[in-house]
Structure formats: C-alpha cells, structure tokens
Design a protein around this nucleic acid. Structure first.
Length: 160
DNA sequence: GCCAACGTTGGC
DNA sequence: GCCAACGTTGGC
C-alpha cells in the first residue's frame, strides 16, 4: 500500500547524548529510551516515510538542527528488557512490552540550528506544542505547515 | 481516588 | 544554577 498522507513529527534530544551529527554518522538509529506514555503513543503512531524534525534541547544552541525520517515503524524497545540499561523496566515482558521505538534515518542537517527564540517569533508557529509554557513532551506531532516553515528557516543561513 | 511530596525536564 | 511546570509515586 502506498503512503497516502505523510505525517510530521518533532523529537527532542540532548546533543551531548545524541546529536544530529551522531545520526548523520550512524545514518539510522532506534529511537529508544522514551519513558513517557504520551510520547510513546506518538512513537507508535509513526509510519515509515514520516518526516521528523530533530530538536536539540539543553544545549549551547537550543533549536531545530535538522530532519530525519521514520525508517521502521515502532517495535518493542529492547532497552526495557536489558537489566544493565538505565531504561530497564521490570514490569515489561516480551509478551507485554510497555515501551516502543521506531527507527529513524538521517535526512539532512540544517546549515544552522534554528533557535527556539526565532521559532517563538514566527506568528505561524504560535500553536506548536514545543513552544507552549511548561511543555516537556519529547515526541510531538507537528503540522505540515509548521514543518515547512521550520524547514525553510533551517535552509536560510540567517533570520530575515 | 485524592493529593502532597518528590523527581525530572528543559528554558533561561 | 535556578526554578516553573509537569508526571509519577505512595500514604491515607
């Protein structure tokens, strides 16, 4: 079946832990370790081919660093079964996994990180979950329009 | 099932 | 490092 409509997402990562450069080097990675139910549900809703904005949080330059794409739909997150992992979950079983992760692949690194301050200034982005007060969700849907606006901002070398 | 205490996230 | 906001835990 062909993809009828592609969805758009945003994932947060601390670049000290895993950055867009790490993804560029590895080309693909399992987006594991997410331990929040709302975020998990969004991960499960991802389909192969969906576009993903890659956001750098808690870093020198906070903002959107590039684009990834879903390369494999969500499957049970192996780290929940790994006793040595910080993401181990004793309540999860192979029959009843609790946490899921998709694979995402590298698409592009923007020429610059689009800083969150610039996102806040864009009238068209006011409704984004990312920009709401107290928002901490590390996986969230974005609209196609929002995706396109941010993509265009990333490909420009500076604000205008 | 309420809710206070606690831990975490994440911008500043 | 601060702290607001949120999610989770656990006593009752």
């Amino acid at each position: 079946m062909l993809e009828i409509s592609m969805a758009f997402w945003l994932v947060k990562s601390e670049p000290d832990v895993y950055s867009i450069d790490d993804l560029a080097r590895e080309q693909s990675t399992g987006w594991n370790g997410v331990r929040n139910y709302q975020a998990r549900n969004f991960l499960k809703a991802m389909a192969v081919g969906d576009s993903v904005l890659f956001y750098h949080s808690s870093s020198e330059v906070i903002g959107v660093a590039g684009v990834a794409a879903v390369t494999r739909a969500a499957y049970p997150d192996p780290t929940q079964f790994d006793k040595r992992s910080e993401y181990f979950d004793a309540a999860a079983t192979a029959k009843k996994p609790r946490w899921f992760c998709p694979d995402i692949g590298f698409v592009e690194k923007f020429p610059r990180v689009v800083p969150i301050g610039e996102l806040r200034e864009k009238p068209g982005l006011k409704a984004m979950a990312l920009l709401q007060r107290g928002s901490r969700l590390s996986v969230q849907p974005v609209s196609e329009r929002e995706f396109k606006v941010i993509h265009a901002m990333g490909e420009r070398s500076a604000a205008s």
